[in-house]
Design a binder for these strands. Structure first.
Lengths: 110, 110
DNA sequence: TCAACATATAACTATCAAGTTATATTAGTC
DNA sequence: GACTAATATAACTTGATAGTTATATGTTGA
């Protein structure tokens, strides 16, 4: 499955949003995301499978639990695809860079 | 349709890649992308409809032609969704964010 | 060892989106 | 005004995928 297709699913996006904050066991994902979307444990398990098979998540075993963590490379690919388009809204980013620069100067003179 | 779902389709992604470089008429998109993927004029037309109805493309009329151009806001939403994840592959960004914050504070107290 | 817990897989169904062909709409040209 | 070109829409078919229930696999602890 392709990166954008994977992110097309709202359940998977929410799972990633949670993993962005902290690692979670499969069961914890079921409790939070599964609950929120009203879907079953197998449904979540299948989503987690998609995420780990496509480099969006990592798993480590902790006894009977599987602990999921965020794997950056999947999202990074998406980020890179976006790169050439950023010039369309980059002006703002440039202003930001200038502000950082201003911050540096102020910092120095204090 | 949701932003990521829209980008899930390889034909639409290619269309956007072309529009990133230059504006194109519907017919030109059919010739380039339609040709590449071996799909018909209506198929392309439908994709263009999706892109314009979801703020990924703009159209202007030029006689019998419709000229498509890139509309940033759709992609920008995607870019913003990605923002919180960037710290996983861009340690620099965290430092950058902190520095901006510091700059703001300095600005206020002046 | 057995019961319960935690998670994954299998098999199936239904929905949705992407393509098709056919046709409508609108603009330019003779 | 009729003809052709450029594009959009309609109606339909099909394939992929997200969900379901049922079951398998593996772990813990009494």
């Amino acid at each position: 499955m392709e990166a954008f297709t994977i992110l097309g699913d709202p359940v998977r996006r929410r799972i990633l949003e949670h993993l962005c904050v902290q690692d979670l066991s499969s069961g914890e994902v079921v409790s939070s995301v599964g609950e929120e979307f009203g879907i079953s444990q197998p449904a979540i398990s299948q989503h987690l499978k998609v995420l780990r098979e496509n480099n969006f998540a990592n798993v480590r075993v902790d006894g009977a639990r599987r602990i999921y963590s965020l794997e950056p490379s999947g999202l990074q690919d998406v980020d890179q695809w976006l790169a050439p388009f950023r010039r369309f809204w980059e002006p703002k980013l440039e202003a930001l860079a200038k502000e950082v620069e201003r911050g540096r100067k102020l910092g120095k003179q204090n």
